[in-house]
Amino acid sequence: MSLIDISPTVHADAPIFPGDEPYALRWTARLGPGCPVNLSALTLSPHIGAHADAPLHYASEAPPIDQVPLDAYIGPCRVIHAIGCGPLITIDHLRHAEADLPPRVLVRTCQQADTTWNPLFSAYAPETLQWLAERGVRLVGIDTPSVDPADSKTLDAHQILRRHDLRVLENLVLDAVPAGDYELIALPLKLAGACASPVRAVLRPL
């Protein structure tokens, strides 16, 4: 069956939080006389593009991404539309899709995902994540850079993730994804000690 790619392209001008490390690629070898291959080297923040936060990102003694179990990142998933919801996704934005909720929920807030940094993106209200956790959700996702507002210093939504041991995907591209149920595949890399990992997130229609 066809796959729906919900990952943005990672490139030098990809939007990142101010002060974060942008994507850069350099060539350490190029095809030519005496060299049989092209070889590149990368520098980037693990929070660029579609990515999975590790609990270490918001709790100092919590596991890094290489120690996080993978099962939450594969399986039945529901895409819920809350386009134009404003600063926060509230419970009322999701109630219409509550019946038989699968363990993974991705929320589309944008008509079109931002391609430049926009600090006014939509985030989750903490009580919404609490509500989802109480309904058996194990992974949440969003089509903006963070589940918390850009100016948050307390990261209340991330702390709800920590409290309920929820996994999270951020910076997804859900522009062309109808609301409904899918299979999610979005495995993080096994990056030793890292606070996050890029993912190639895809949906498979059921």
Rank of each mutant, 00 (worst) to 15 (best):
157 A>F: 04
60 S>G: 03
163 R>P: 08
116 T>W: 15
97 A>F: 07
72 A>T: 03
84 G>V: 04
179 A>C: 01
118 N>E: 11
156 D>K: 09
55 P>Q: 06
139 L>V: 11
202 V>A: 15
66 D>S: 12
146 S>Y: 01
192 A>E: 14
94 L>W: 01
90 T>G: 14
16 I>K: 05
129 L>H: 11
48 I>H: 01
75 G>D: 00
92 D>C: 02
200 R>G: 11
120 L>Y: 15
169 L>Y: 00
33 P>D: 10
138 R>I: 07
155 L>Q: 07
149 P>G: 02
98 E>R: 11
156 D>R: 15
200 R>E: 14
24 A>G: 02
76 P>R: 15
27 W>F: 10
11 H>Q: 08
78 R>S: 00
40 S>K: 13
18 P>C: 00
44 L>D: 08
159 Q>Y: 01
55 P>T: 08
77 C>Q: 08
116 T>R: 15
102 P>S: 00
151 D>G: 04
173 V>F: 07
56 L>D: 00
120 L>K: 14
96 H>P: 03
204 R>V: 14
59 A>V: 10
88 L>R: 12
155 L>E: 06
80 I>D: 10
57 H>G: 05
165 D>C: 01
77 C>L: 07
122 S>N: 09
78 R>H: 01
154 T>F: 08
203 L>E: 07
198 P>R: 11
122 S>A: 14
106 L>V: 07
46 P>T: 05
195 C>S: 14
197 S>F: 02
51 H>E: 02
205 P>F: 00
91 I>A: 00
75 G>E: 02
170 E>D: 03
13 D>K: 03
139 L>E: 07
93 H>M: 01
42 L>E: 10
189 L>D: 13
10 V>C: 13
27 W>G: 08
131 W>Y: 15
139 L>G: 12
150 A>Q: 04
156 D>C: 04
